[in-house]
Design a protein around this nucleic acid. Structure first.
Length: 369
DNA sequence: CAGCCGTGGAC
DNA sequence: TGTCCAAGGCT
């Protein structure tokens, strides 16, 4: 044999392989009591048998597509796998490459993103696509520092892309991994104060002897968090690393991670103006900053924490309440037989790309129009 | 750096 | 109905 083949497929030169081999024997002898190394081994073994099949995930021995990895990671930010699947399929069908996405009109991207939430992600996604297409000729950078300069890519996503798309040994920390680590080491500091502590543990977990297949290891931790080490009712009995888990030895692992209590959210109110004229409905494009930025919607009065004045014609039952992350909004429709700047056909409303708040309102009132 | 920024599913 | 929360980033 001309050299040795390391797990990422590269072939090392003979002289170097001698050094590596002797180093690995040394590593294996000290790795016996090296818990992170044992966890890595157990996780990779588990992952080879239980990895989830996901639309954006490369199958075993398949080369990941950095465009798919990036697109899915941005969509998955603070969002569930179930919600993302159909959007991911739609996006790669509409735009098979980052060049195609870069060439799309911004409004089209916003429209297709409608319903997925956190709409600044869509704007940054489009910006990022244009930078990658133009500055990097469509080739995603593979190092974390360069990735982090791109819009919409922060600590987590940069590490995830470096790891998953390029098999770089990055420290990947998402909500799943925070939970897994909080339980492994029974961290009693609440989030988000514990983030520094968690990162410190993560570095020991990710970096060290027998650090093979970093991409698979990172994904294995996320799969574990999603299917076994779940927020509620974790399935510790079938966890591949329960023997290394300090929380498993306690009465109730599910109490980790501790979190700072959340504040109560205020109730806001506003009137939505429903312009109706010749079977057309009035809409507006919202400003880029603020709630539902860049999305279309019905014009509304300011969203305020006091009750809005409602006049005689108003029906008490005709309203919708929608809960956002940091406040709830009740919208009261006010119908005007008049025109405004942007009017679209009544039949086009369902496919126009309304965010959920306005979609809910439209679904309630459309039968009455 | 704490607040802002969506949504739908689980319990 | 309420509560939590899911592969966070930006300011």
């Amino acid at each position: 044999m001309e050299g040795i083949i390391v797990p990422n497929g590269a072939v090392l030169k003979p002289r170097l392989s001698k050094v590596i081999l002797s180093l690995s024997f040394f590593a294996m002898s000290v790795a016996k009591n090296d818990t992170p190394s044992l966890i890595r081994e157990a996780m990779l073994n588990w992952y080879d048998r239980h990895a989830r099949v996901l639309p954006w995930r490369a199958r075993p021995f398949e080369k990941p597509d950095p465009y798919h990895v990036w697109l899915s990671e941005v969509m998955l930010q603070q969002t569930t796998v179930g919600a993302v699947k159909s959007y991911f399929e739609k996006f790669v069908t509409l735009w098979p490459s980052v060049h195609d996405l870069a060439d799309a009109a911004q409004e089209t991207v916003m429209k297709e993103w409608a319903g997925l939430g956190y709409y600044s992600r869509a704007r940054n996604l489009h910006k990022c696509a244009r930078v990658v297409a133009e500055k990097y000729d469509g080739v995603f950078p593979s190092d974390i520092k360069t990735l982090k300069l791109l819009p919409g890519i922060g600590d987590y996503t940069a590490a995830a892309i470096a790891s998953i798309a390029f098999d770089r040994p990055a420290i990947v920390i998402d909500g799943n991994i925070e939970r897994v680590i909080s339980r492994l080491y029974i961290i009693d500091t609440p989030l988000p104060d514990s983030k520094r502590i968690i990162r410190n543990y993560a570095e020991h977990l990710f970096v060290g002897e027998n650090q093979n297949r970093p991409s698979c290891f990172a994904q294995s931790l996320m799969d574990l968090g999603a299917t076994i080490c779940t927020p509620r009712s974790p399935k510790c009995m079938i966890c591949p690393i329960n023997q290394y888990c300090k929380a498993y030895k306690t009465a109730d692992p599910s109490i980790y991670p501790f979190k700072k209590p959340k504040k109560k959210i205020p109730e806001k109110h506003a009137i939505a103006i429903i312009y109706i004229h010749n079977d057309k409905i009035g809409i507006e494009t919202r400003p880029e900053k603020g709630m539902l930025g860049g999305m279309i919607g019905f014009p509304t009065t300011e969203w305020v924490e006091v009750d809005v004045p409602l006049t005689g014609e108003y029906k008490e039952s005709l309203k919708i309440r929608h809960v956002f992350t940091h406040f709830a909004l009740t919208l009261y429709p006010l119908f005007l037989s008049d025109e405004t700047d942007m009017m679209i056909g009544k039949d086009e409303m369902d496919t126009a790309g309304l965010p959920t708040l306005f979609k809910k309102l439209w679904n309630m009132i459309k039968s009455e129009i």
